[in-house]
Amino acid sequence: MNFKNVPTVCPYCGCGCGIILQVLDGEIINIVPSKSSPVNEGKLCIKGWNAHQFVYSPKRVTKPLMRKNDDFTETSWDEALDFAVSELSRIKDQYGPDSIAVITSAKCTNEENYLVQKFARAAIGTNNVDHCARL
């Protein structure tokens, strides 16, 4: 019998609502809003209330997908990364760095978002950085 309540932050938008994952014997069974979080004060939107549901979804992408013959096909990380690097390099050489844009996400951590913009500016050489947090 192991019932844990794990305070964490909702992974959806950039608001950062406090949620509490209810974990019974290692399985997330429910979410409650954190009543003491100064951000949401015990309130949530419908996405926050259901933020745990993707965890066990059979539809989760677990391997890199590459479009081959118009179909997404599972592939290895090596092949996926090699392809991304070669195509990004080709496009940058042929059309210049501003032909590439990078889209980050509110679902990423601060550090991940920092890395993505650093990659755009330092590695690719463009200021074309945007994000999905236009909820």
Binding site: P7, Q22, S36
Partner: peptide, 20 residues
């Protein structure tokens, strides 16, 4: 009782907790 379902303070928050 095998456990007590109550509240506890954890990292500045108040959360439900099963005390055993």
């Amino acid at each position: 009782i095998d456990g007590f379902l109550g509240l506890k303070k954890e990292s500045g928050q108040i959360i439900p907790y099963l005390f055993s």
